[in-house]
Amino acid sequence: MYTTTWYRTARLLLPAAALAAWSFLAPSFAAEENTRPPAPPSVDAKQPGEYPVPPPPFSKGIYPCTECHNKDLPVNRTRRKLEAAHDDIQLHHDEEHRWCLDCHDADNRDVLRSASGEPIKFEESYKLCGQCHGDKYRDWKVGVHGKRSGEWNGRKTYLLCVNCHDPHSPKYKSIAPMPPPVRPENIR
């Protein structure tokens, strides 16, 4: 039996087969790991007040408000529809219960006012919105609400609420979509 062709062939093939099997089953030897960049430090922990935002998007020439709203212009605290000026503003923001002077400081039109009467700078208008929209404000602070740009592990820039939401009519406006993809049957 030990001289048959079959046995001789098997004797030759067996070590080769064993080697092949070992090579397949042995773990692959990964390339030598060059030093990988070190773990970046976490920079998402926010310090209060550190929200780099663009300047408030005032309409041209509207600011500073005190150019008109100064001691020469009497303050009218009666809730009414404006006709003498700012009549282009249509309030669609809980207009049943609130009007202009609930957010704008009657005594200093260059700032906004909180519910308790504290002044809020236009550059920090998010604090005003955040009074009622607390959940959005919490999300916005960590970058989950609204657009936030920059480095995923570094400096980030925020947008003011009013960069996307017109404060007098905040519902996000619909826009034209960009073109749909080409259908596969039209790809030549």
Binding site: S42, G143, G146, K147, R148, W152, C164
Partner: peptide, 15 residues
């Protein structure tokens, strides 16, 4: 509209 969020899953402070 800020619908897309990205970060490091291993960083507890990430969005």
């Amino acid at each position: 509209v800020g619908a897309r969020k990205f970060g490091n899953l291993l960083d507890e402070q990430s969005e």
